[in-house]
Each structure stands twice: as C-alpha cells, then as structure tokens.
C-alpha cells in the first residue's frame, strides 16, 4: 500500500476541496473516496489502487443513509449499509428481490460495513486484475492486453465481453436495481443530477478501464426504485459453489407481473455472467403477453444467451445461466405476491 493523505471532512463540499487543494501542485496526486472500504482497502493492499489521498465520506455523507418508502418510490440512501437495507421491513415486503440480493451477498460483517453505493461500484474479482504482477490487464493498464483470455477463466463473463476484457461484474444488488428500473442520484462538482441505473456501468468494448459513466468527483447519493405491479413478486436466485459468502456463478433477479399465468410484465437481470449488471431484454420481450410455463421460460432463457461468448473454462455458465433463469421465473411465478 502506498502512503496517502487521509481526511474526513464534515461537509461534501469540504470533502473534495480539502482533499485536492493540498495536492494541487502535485500532478501525481490522486484522490479516492472511502465509504465502507471493503473494496478500496482490499485493492489498496494489493496495490491495484494507489491513491495518494483518501477522502473518508463517512462524516460528510451520513445524511444519505435514510431508507424511505412513500408507497410509490423506494428511496435508498447510497450510504445506507447493505445489512440495514436487507433487514428493512418495507424492503423485505415490497421489494423482496432487493432484500434477497443484499442478504445473499458477502457476509454479515461485510454487509455491516459496505454501503449501497460502494457495493454498486465494486470492482471485478478477475484474478488477473487483482494481481498487478500480471502485466496484461486492460482495466489496470489500457492497451496492455487481457491475461484472463487464455488464462484460468471459469469465473469470467460470457455476456458483454470484448476481445479486450472478459472480467465479470460480480455484484448482486445491482441486478435487483436493473430488474426494477432504478435510478440513481448523483452529486458532483458540476452539481446534482440523476441517471437511470442501467446507464451507470459501461461495457468494456475497447475501453475496459472505463467502468462507469460517473464524472470525476461524482458521488452516488441516493437510489430510487419505483414501485410497480412486479415489485412484490420479485426474487433473486443465486447459484454458487459454496452455500454462502461467495460470488455468484450465475444469478438472476426476476420481477414479474402476472394475470393468471399470463405475463403482463417481466424484468430479468443477470449476475455473475456478464461484464456489467445485465438486463435480459430479449428474454423479457419474448415472455410479455405469453403464459409463463416451463416451455416459455426455457425459450426465454435460451434467448437471453443468444449473444454469449464462452472462454475455455466458462462455457458451462451459459447452461447454468439458462437453468437459473428458468428456475427464477418459475419460482417467482409461484410466489404469494399480495398487494399489501
């Protein structure tokens, strides 16, 4: 870990100012925000992240930790802890896919530490990204290549990959937000703005080092999730080698609105399979207006992987992913989902 300046300003404005003025004459100064620390400290120990200034947001951003549901929109402060949100009664009853995605992630301790915003911005677990002694990583070092292609890549992505990067986005919570069409609120040097959550993460393409559409200095402050006929009938299925405390081999967030067995609306998001949080739009389109059953779910599942590209060790993920979609759809359909 490189030495760094640490500051913990009490207001957001002061946060950024105090963190940067000290180094304004130093062109190598790099600032990073610290929230829960579960990604940052880990990657700093590995020398993957080498900030010269760590600006601790835990005093200044405390105001952004409320959880409110007014009957039409769930507002989640980005600095709320994962565990708090997972255990919140409104979230459990009205947005089960959110509660499940959070409580199936990481461990109780990590969920007590990590904030929602930090969770959304977690970095990939790609082993070649996490070890800087591998020279080839286009995320760490643009243009250097990708060691995972041709390496050990069982955990890598099959969707949204490019010839420059196949690193998986491993988060769980993000899949629930994708499925529920969430939006995020941001504050940054240019002011406040909002964007659809689906616009936050960038597919690797030719620029794997560009992971999000956040502008420099921008902070996620709040997550907005609209209520809808599908939110109560929603579910998160996480498939993994170990029963708990592990990233997904494949995961599926489903939200479903049914009339009888007829699908009036459906949202499907996939985790552990793609380079970014992933919405299976074609699969949804196929199901809308049709009866949900084994056959239609299977057809939708196949559609979701139409563009999948497998590597040497991860072809099975296409099959597991398809099974997980079928399972998630049928389990979600079987849910008791009363308007409450």
């Amino acid at each position: 870990m490189q030495p760094f300046h640490y500051s913990r300003p009490v207001s957001l404005a002061e946060t950024i100012v105090s963190g940067t003025q000290k180094h304004s004459r130093n062109a190598e100064a790099t600032a990073t925000f610290l929230a829960g620390g579960t990604t940052l400290i880990d990657l700093m120990k590995l020398d993957v992240m080498r900030p010269s200034h760590v600006v601790d947001l835990n005093s200044s951003a405390r105001e952004f930790s409320a959880i409110r549901f007014d009957g039409s929109t769930l507002r989640l402060g980005a600095f709320a802890k994962m565990a708090t949100v997972a255990d919140h009664p409104d979230v459990i009853s009205h947005f089960p896919v959110i509660a499940q995605s959070l409580s199936l992630a990481a461990s109780a301790q990590l969920r007590n530490m990590a904030t929602l915003g930090g969770n959304l911005l977690q970095r990939t677990r790609c082993a070649y990204f996490r070890d800087p002694s591998w020279a080839a990583c286009n995320k760490r070092s643009p243009g250097s290549g990708c060691a995972a292609i041709g390496g050990v890549n069982r955990q890598h992505a099959v969707l949204g990959t490019s010839k420059h990067c196949i690193a998986t986005y491993h988060g769980d919570f993000a899949q629930a937000l994708m499925a529920l069409d969430a939006a995020i609120m941001l504050i940054g040097p240019d002011g406040a703005r909002s964007m659809p959550f689906a616009s936050l993460h960038l597919q690797p393409g030719n620029t794997p080092h560009l992971e999000t559409s956040l502008r420099p200095g921008e902070i996620i402050t709040e997550i907005l999730v609209p209520d809808g006929p599908w939110t109560r009938r929603s579910r998160y299925v996480k498939v993994r080698d170990r029963q708990s405390y592990e990233f997904a081999v494949a995961s599926v967030a489903v939200a479903l609105a049914l009339e009888g067995s007829m699908v009036t609306d459906v949202r499907i998001a996939l985790g552990g399979l793609a380079t970014t949080p992933w919405r299976a739009v074609d699969a949804e389109d196929l199901l809308r207006g049709r009866r949900l059953n084994e056959a239609s779910a299977t057809e939708a599942a196949r559609t979701a992987f139409a563009g999948a590209v497998a590597q040497a060790h991860n072809a099975f993920k296409i099959s597991v992913g398809q099974s997980a979609i079928v399972r998630a759809l049928l389990e979600t359909a079987a849910m008791e989902a009363h308007r409450g």
Binding site: R125, A127, Q155, D241, R242, Q243, S244, Y245, E246, F247
Partner: peptide, 10 residues
C-alpha cells in the same frame, strides 16, 4: 475468497 473452504452454511 477464491480457494473455497466450506462455510458454516455448507
């Protein structure tokens, strides 16, 4: 995290 040992839930 990547060398899997069983956890309590297993």
């Amino acid at each position: 995290a990547d060398y899997l040992l069983p956890v309590n839930a297993d």
